[in-house]
């Protein structure tokens, strides 16, 4: 069964399952130890390498094999971890496990345009004002009407020496926002890339004095980006296309990497995101099988009471009209054939002499006859008339 359709075939909103979107993805890291090799880290030696691939390995990693930065001696000590997710996801959480003492200051950012621009999701710091110029987050969440990047306490060091940075997108979002009805929340959750900035190591006594920093390196593993492949409610799964790009397996007459538009012939009403209550499927234009293309007309859609705005293009089989529902000039509807029959429209075939024109009644097929002429195609003299020799007046009254 297809989760995007009811048993009876009616469309319903559907979403892909929750996954770790970072799993197996390449992590771009600004700094990794081992080049040149040191006693503790050698990127050319598998046993002593600590590459960023260890951050997103399937099945996780262990603290003995973590990504590690170089040993840093001077400020700024920024190290950047960037994970391109391959396509838009709707985030649920982001977490990173540190293999050594967690940093005292971390910024979490997202991109919605594959890394061209970045916006903050949240900050973690023991000194929010000093590091990020903003107050520590209140326990009530954001005060504003929409989501915002708040500054949370820095990750705590665990007894084993490591620590966990965990961010839930709900942490930055005011309670009560409904994903179906809030474009602001939809925007807040959407990301194509995640970036983690490690900006300050934790020091003994948590000093604010950057000059006091002693040699330090960052070390982490298990970078998880929990989220759902973003398909706008029109797909229940994502797949790899022939070029290896992750795309939604779109239903409901939609297409695009995120099912973000209607398929070419499915433009009888505007594209909309599906909700839990309404699938908002894209509808095929009604062209009675005589056209392969159509376009959307907003004015017609409004005039129809927001029910139908599709206009068929290039009606074939001698049909015409918005829905290819009548016959073009010079043709008439064959009452014995269905409207979607290829031969639903017959040529008028008006008699070249008996008819006064070539265009017949599109419903009855009756050609316009000259005086004294009768018949559907005007090919006979009417009772009381007989054929003359004049093509201008082919039938004259019988003497």
């Amino acid at each position: 069964t297809d989760p995007c359709y009811e048993e009876g075939g009616a469309p319903r909103g559907c979403i892909p399952g929750l996954v770790n979107a970072a799993l197996g993805r390449e992590v771009l890291v600004s700094n990794t130890c081992g080049r040149p090799a040191t006693w503790a880290c050698d990127s050319s030696d598998l046993m002593r390498a600590h590459p960023p691939a260890l951050l997103t390995l399937a099945g996780g990693s262990t603290s003995s094999v973590c990504w590690r930065s170089e040993v840093l001696h001077r400020v700024p000590l920024n190290v950047t971890l960037t994970v391109p997710l391959g396509k838009a996801f709707e985030l649920v959480f982001v977490s990173l496990r540190f293999c050594s003492a967690p940093p005292a200051s971390v910024a979490l950012l997202k991109s919605q345009d594959h890394g061209h621009s970045w916006t903050p999701l949240g900050f973690f710091s023991s000194h929010c004002s000093l590091d990020y110029g903003r107050p520590p987050a209140s326990s009530d969440g954001p005060a504003g009407p929409g989501p915002e990047a708040l500054c949370f306490p820095a990750p705590q060091a665990h007894s084993d020496g490591g620590g966990l940075m965990a961010f839930s997108v709900q942490d930055g979002s005011p309670p009560g926002l409904d994903l179906d009805s809030s474009p602001v929340l939809q925007d807040w959750l959407t990301a194509t890339d995640i970036r983690i900035l490690l900006t300050r190591p934790s020091m003994p006594g948590d000093t604010k004095d950057l000059d006091a920093i002693v040699p330090y390196s960052y070390s982490a593993t298990e970078l998880q980006v929990g989220g759902r492949c973003k398909c706008n409610g029109h797909a229940s799964r994502c797949l790899l296309d022939t070029q290896g790009h992750l795309i939604c397996d779109c239903r409901h007459g939609t297409e695009g990497p995120d099912c973000g538009r209607c398929k070419p012939f499915y433009c009888d009403r505007p594209w909309q995101r599906a909700t839990a209550r309404e699938a908002h499927a894209c509808l095929a234009c009604s062209c009675n099988g005589h056209a392969r293309r159509c376009r959307f007309n907003m004015e017609l859609y409004r005039l129809s009471g927001r029910r139908s705005g599709g206009v068929c293009l290039n009606c074939r089989h001698n049909t015409a009209g918005r829905h290819c529902h009548y016959c073009r000039e010079g043709f008439y509807r064959d009452p014995d054939r269905a409207l979607n029959d290829r031969r639903a429209c017959r040529a008028c075939d008006c008699h070249p002499v008996g008819a006064a024109g070539k265009t017949c009644n599109q419903t009855t097929g009756q050609c316009p006859c000259k005086d004294g002429v009768t018949g559907l195609t005007c090919n006979r003299c009417a009772p009381g008339f007989q054929q003359s020799r004049s093509p201008v007046a082919p039938c004259v009254k019988t003497p």
């Binding site: 009417a382 009772p383 054929q387 004049s390």
Partner: peptide, 23 residues
């Protein structure tokens, strides 16, 4: 009674050559 169809051969096109349909 069904009248016979118009017989094209009976028409005299002498003065109406420009109206004569192509057959």
């Amino acid at each position: 009674d069904v009248m016979p169809t118009l017989d094209m051969a009976l028409f005299d096109w002498t003065d109406y050559e420009d109206l004569k349909p192509e057959v």
